[in-house]
């Protein structure tokens, strides 16, 4: 997996240490720590994992193993407008896959990635409880329903100015 290289600010490091401390630097709490740290930063870049590794005395390889095992964790920053495509059963049978393919094509990114300008990121999720509107896509807080691949361009244009 490629990773974005970033430099952590001192206050970021302090925040990670604070989170680790709140779990007594217990290696058994690795997942909880990562959960909280991702809540803070939005994602878990390599440098963040290094700080966690030093604090919890868990090897970097193990931490990376956990981060790549659970789909909840991500090493890529979410875009300004995170796009989530429901691939739950109802959406799937009503063509979510085709909508997803169109998003991938138009944005030029894969699931789990962000566009180079940081504007959009693409993830899949399972069921948002709006099966009647299948297939459903969420962009930020806004929900779009009954989508077809043809709608994708038009929807993305709504975000052209910001």
């Amino acid at each position: 997996m490629s990773s974005i290289k970033i430099k952590l600010k001192e206050k970021d490091v302090a925040k990670i240490i604070e989170i680790c401390d709140s779990f007594d630097n217990n290696p058994g709490d690795l997942i909880n720590v990562l959960h909280k740290v991702q809540g803070e930063f939005g994602y878990l870049p390599a440098e963040v994992q290094e700080v966690v590794s030093n604090q919890l005395k868990v090897s970097l390889a193990k931490i990376y193993g956990v981060v790549t095992f659970y789909s909840f964790f991500t090493m890529i920053p979410r875009g300004k407008h995170p796009i989530s495509i429901c691939t739950g059963t109802a959406c799937y049978v009503r063509g979510a896959e085709k909508v997803l393919d169109e998003f991938k094509k138009v944005l030029g990114i894969k699931v789990g990635e962000s566009t180079a300008d940081g504007k959009f990121s693409l993830t899949c999720l399972r069921c948002v409880g709006a099966c009647g509107l299948a297939p459903v896509v969420q962009i930020g807080d806004k929900t779009y329903g009954r989508l077809a691949p043809d709608d994708v361009k038009r929807i993305l244009d709504e975000y052209a100015d910001n």
Binding site: M1, S3, A46, Q49, V58, S59, L60, A61, K62, I63, Y64, G65, T68, F69, S71
Partner: peptide, 26 residues
Amino acid sequence: CNEVQTVGVLSAINRGFQSVVAPAFE
């Protein structure tokens, strides 16, 4: 690598069919 030598280089990463044993960040 991890328990006996405590070197911590090798770990299973990713999930399912994509899973391999590799160093951090591959």
